[in-house]
Amino acid sequence: MTDAPGKDPLETWAAEVRGEALAPLRDEKVAAVARNAAGVILRTTSVTAAGAAGVVATHAAAKIATAAVLTAVLAGGAAAATGSLPDPVQSWVADVVDHVGIHLPRPPLDLPGVDVTVPGVDVTVPRVDVTVPLVDVTVPDADVTVPDADVTETSTPGVPPITVPDLPDVGG
């Protein structure tokens, strides 16, 4: 769509609309809008930088807090591992970590003595000595003798003996 008045009413129309709508801006207006827009950029940048600094500060504080907690946990863990915590604490810690399969020393139980007496019943278990004598197991050398077999001709009942007649000599 270019200006070509007189050829195509649409082009004439477009040129007229452009001429009517497009008005040059006053220099003061341009300067004011430019100043405001640049100000938005600079404010956004400074806010972003401040936000980044805040994030860094927060991050550093979080790291310090984490280190402190970690130190406390490690120190407490070491004390618990050696059983040097106060008895109630040591017992509690041992109970807690026992659930996750870690066994820590527990303080000695201080239970009150219980005396149980059953009147009229004396149970005596005599000492029983059990002696298991040494057992000598001797395996003598085996002397195995196989006598010479004495094989005799046998006959089978009911079967006539086979007789082989003498054969004449064949000269040759």
């Binding site: 008005a23 801006l25 207006k29 100043r35």
Partner: peptide
């Protein structure tokens, strides 16, 4: 970078067309 002169160039370039579009 927030260069005001650059923004003045942009506004002088595009501003009339944007205002004209809004006007129309």
């Amino acid at each position: 970078a927030g260069d005001e002169t650059a923004w003045a160039t942009i506004v002088a370039d595009l501003g009339p067309a944007i205002a004209g579009y809004a006007r129309a």
